[in-house]
């Protein structure tokens, strides 16, 4: 324990700030997992994007990696402003408000989530020992965010929360890339951002088709249809 105390003040302030951002990302991931209302879910997603943008900016500032500023800017435009706006419009046009229905009840989901966090931390331990960045200890948290978003996609039966889960998973991946290697090359980052955008458009079209066909956004109807065919 004394060894910890003596190493703690050695961490630079930027590193502490990034650690704080990582913790808040994890907190938001859990909040999304426990959220029942769809409008709050979208708001939480926007907030997670904002924290991601902030942490990317801090990494850019403290390491002098200029292309990370662009990543932060793309994150801000895409994940904090554009995607939540599109999602909100979609929810309004589909007129779903209390649409969050879970397959397992929420306390159980949270317990599974804790288990996932422990797994993620253990898996990330050897990776973070290899990485040489100041942000390496946050790899475990980024992995946990990805797994929690996965869990959210699995446990939600409606389409919109599943899509939010997908977007949030991308947030986690992006965070993992930033913390492990100071971000991917610009081309890849742009490609991923474009993919998410296109994905959103495709999902939007899908929502309307699903609802037209089944009179509901519940994915279980689609599964039943597939089974009968």
């Amino acid at each position: 324990m004394n060894a910890w105390l003596s190493t703690l003040p050695g961490l630079p302030f930027a590193g502490q700030l990034i650690n704080l951002c990582a913790a808040i990302m994890l907190l938001i991931a859990f909040a999304m997992l426990s959220q029942r209302r769809i409008s709050s879910l979208i708001r939480l997603f926007a907030l997670q994007g904002a924290v991601l943008c902030l942490s990317t900016a801090v990494v850019a500032q403290s390491t002098g990696q200029d292309h990370l500023w662009w990543s932060a800017l793309i994150t801000l435009l895409l994940k904090v402003l554009l995607l939540p706006w599109v999602l909100r419009r979609l929810v309004q046009r589909l007129s779903v408000k209390w649409d969050v229905e879970t397959l397992i009840n929420i306390p159980t989901t949270m317990l599974v989530g804790i288990g996932l966090v422990i797994v993620a931390f253990n898996v990330a331990q050897p990776i973070s020992e290899l990485a040489g960045t100041i942000t390496r200890s946050t790899i475990g948290i980024a992995l946990a965010c990805v797994l929690l978003a996965f869990l959210m996609m699995i446990t939600r039966s409606k389409a919109v929360p599943q899509v939010v889960g997908f977007m949030s998973m991308e947030n986690g991946l992006f965070f993992a890339a930033t913390s492990a290697t100071y971000g991917m090359p610009m081309v890849i980052e742009l490609g991923v951002a474009l993919d998410v955008l296109v994905g959103m458009v495709v999902f939007g079209v899908f929502f309307f088709h699903i609802r037209e066909k089944f009179d509901s956004l519940d994915i279980r109807h689609v599964e039943e249809k597939a089974r009968h065919d």
């Binding site: 910890w4 190493t7 990582a22 907190l27 931390f121 200890s137």
Partner: peptide, 13 residues
């Protein structure tokens, strides 16, 4: 989670 985060982020390195 607070304990876990402490062990990961602020723990031994």
């Amino acid at each position: 989670l607070a304990v876990l985060v402490h062990l990961l982020l602020e723990g031994s390195r």
